[in-house]
């Protein structure tokens, strides 16, 4: 066991962790931040995506000990300070970008990173960026539309409610 200290969603936390404890296990089991999901064991599905020092990271690919001193943000820290959905979250709701919701936290975190790197991505750029995030429900159609809309671009048909 070793002690780690990191900032998670703006709050400093210190805990003892096992040497082989993955960051995703640390978040889910020790901090009870269960919004970050585990969908596979080969780092393929992306349901566990979080931000570590501003970078998109699959939380199953690093040990908690490696995140010592890091700034981590998870899906639980994404909403606006007043608790309302942020622009990306709101776009996912407006455009029906989720169904069962299991891949959604990873999708939202990936979308945030994409839009930071590329504020006006094309459809193909979005699809390419999401290669590491698997969704089984939506066929990606409405996820792509949601991210286009969140980036302020015109989406064919507009928001769902206005269709």
């Amino acid at each position: 066991m070793s002690d780690v200290t990191m900032t998670v969603n703006g709050k400093t936390v210190s805990r003892a962790v096992r040497g082989n404890e993955l960051l995703v296990e640390f978040l889910r089991e020790q901090l009870r931040l269960t919004g970050t999901h585990v969908g596979c064991d080969t780092s393929q599905c992306g349901a566990c995506c979080v931000h570590v020092n501003g970078e998109l990271v699959k939380a199953c690919t690093i040990f908690a000990a490696e995140a010592d001193g890091a700034e981590v943000s998870t899906i639980e820290g994404q909403a606006n300070p007043d608790g309302s959905l942020n622009v990306i979250q709101q776009a996912f709701q407006d455009h029906h970008g989720l169904q069962c919701g299991f891949c959604t936290p990873g999708m939202v975190m990936a979308a945030a990173s994409l839009l930071k790197e590329n504020p006006k991505p094309s459809e193909q750029e979005i699809r390419h960026y999401l290669q590491g995030n698997i969704c089984r429900c939506t066929g990606y159609h409405n996820i792509v539309r949601a991210i286009m809309a969140a980036s302020g671009q015109e989406v064919e048909g507009g928001a769902i409610a206005a269709e």
């Binding site: 709701q93 919701g101 959604t104």
Partner: peptide, 11 residues
């Protein structure tokens, strides 16, 4: 719009 989305989108 789906009401269940809010909890799924906020973890």
């Amino acid at each position: 719009k789906r009401r269940e989305d809010v909890r799924f989108l906020t973890g």
